[in-house]
Write a protein that binds this DNA or RNA. Structure first.
Lengths: 267, 267
DNA sequence: AAGTGGTCTAGACCACTTT
DNA sequence: AAGTGGTCTAGACCACTTC
């Protein structure tokens, strides 16, 4: 059995028809080539980036996308598989595929790796020390892909677990993107700042990279954390990226690691 | 076109034949069920664990494994996809699939996240301070899944980059597994310790989890790192696991982060 | 030319959710 | 019952490596 009822399709079949996709390797060994499912993935990513489907929303079903792009369901599936692995979307059997969002409790601990030595992680309370518009210093500008002197929003706050001040952090945000962000709005907003960024500034962080160091508390940090100057603190500098790997946040935190530690899995 | 030439197979087809696989959900909502490709994955992992295919070696081709397990190539492929994602194997188009190994330069930086602030990462030189067999203290025993008092090997060493002492670390290894590990052998062995563990003790680390803290140098660490007591140091406690998620190494390191930092990607 | 992994398709059926 | 993602199969062809 299993004869060959005329090749149901050959090579890059339904190809020439609708035109756009399937960038065949124009010249053997050419630079521009990527498999179909990556092209589909790029198209879906573009729709995410453009806001066609917003965080928390359902995206079209695999069958629907397959029809739209004129490819098989399996190819769409592979594209979405990768997006799910990168946490850009979330699949739910029987329901559909949802755009990732920072509005859920789950998401809170994706970027916050500081956990208590004992007990379960919970979200800290924030106290804002300072919020102002300033011109970007050279180092901040470089990390955020801005020009030195461009407008940025500067935020300084202290976060406490169970009333114990544990984190003092400074945030730098591109003024152009976060225009209109006020201290009042942040104080009134409950939950992680990434939720606010997403719902009010259409900016969804997809990835971040951190550099960790050990430092000692200076007078300012010591006072804010209510510890002696010279107390060792874990310094974390985080650059967060949105779609297209565009840097949109610089965060510099000092963590008191007396009752907490930074947890990391190496795979 | 594309008619239906009698279902080439139905449901869990070639099933009843060879027997073993395809644990159907005996009772709807039963606890024991996993898709075929995960069962295949488990079988392959068992062969890796048993040493049937050793680190660096080629495993059988997808077609061959499909024949062996009486499943389609696609199912084997999905199993191997997951193993590759977990870094247990490495695929190379045209050549085959290889068992992951710590013998390659690439592998050196998988677990060593400390990188220089400037310039490219390179591997440090080791100086061994102490190597001895001891009885496991309670905390070490707990982390290594041993009994308090069980034999363990204790190693203390300092690692330098370009002659600058940067890491002082203590390793605790189960005596049963690493029987015969001597200071001489370690000194004479070039390259990362995980390479030695793999080639001489048939122990391949597949994953690790680290807890990071900021501490200050005590007199001992200060002397070894040639810094003043009170200098802030990044403390990293790492538990490394081998196949079956069995803990086989406890490593406690103190990192001088003056010229280096710990780099972490958050996805 | 032969073998290996990589891509793509088509179709069937399963598990879960909603109507 | 209908729709969605999840699994499994079979087969074709491509890209890369080795003989």
């Amino acid at each position: 059995m299993a004869m060959n009822p005329a090749p149901p399709n050959s090579t890059n079949n339904a190809n020439a028809s609708s035109g756009t996709l399937r960038a065949m390797p124009s010249v053997p060994g050419s630079p521009t080539f990527s498999p179909l499912y990556r092209q589909i993935k790029a198209l879906i990513t573009k729709s995410l980036q453009s806001g066609e489907w917003k965080p928390g929303e359902l995206i079209p079903s695999e069958v629907e996308l397959a029809n739209r792009f004129k490819v098989s369901q399996g190819t769409v599936r592979k594209a979405i598989d990768e997006l799910a692995a990168e946490n850009l979307v979330m699949r739910r059997q029987g329901k559909g595929t949802f755009v990732a969002t920072h509005q859920e409790a789950r998401a809170h601990f994706r970027f916050l790796r500081l956990v208590p030595d004992e007990g379960v992680p919970h979200y800290p309370a924030s106290k804002f020390i300072e919020v102002k518009r300033v011109r970007a210093p050279a180092d901040v500008a470089r990390l955020l892909d801005l020009k030195s002197g461009d407008a940025v929003i500067f935020i300084k706050r202290v976060q406490s677990f169970d009333g114990v001040p544990t984190i003092v952090e400074e945030l730098w945000l591109p003024g152009l993107i976060f225009k209109g962000l006020t201290a009042e709005r942040m104080v009134e907003y409950k939950g992680p700042m990434y939720g606010l960024f997403e719902s009010e500034f259409a900016t969804h962080m997809i990835r971040a990279s951190e550099k960790l160091r050990a430092v000692v508390a200076d007078a300012d940090a010591a006072e804010l954390l209510q510890v002696a100057p010279g107390t060792p603190l874990l310094s974390a500098e985080r650059v967060s990226l949105t779609y297209g790997d565009k840097a949109v946040e610089l965060r510099r935190g000092l963590y008191l690691t007396a009752q907490h530690h930074y947890e990391n899995e190496l795979n």
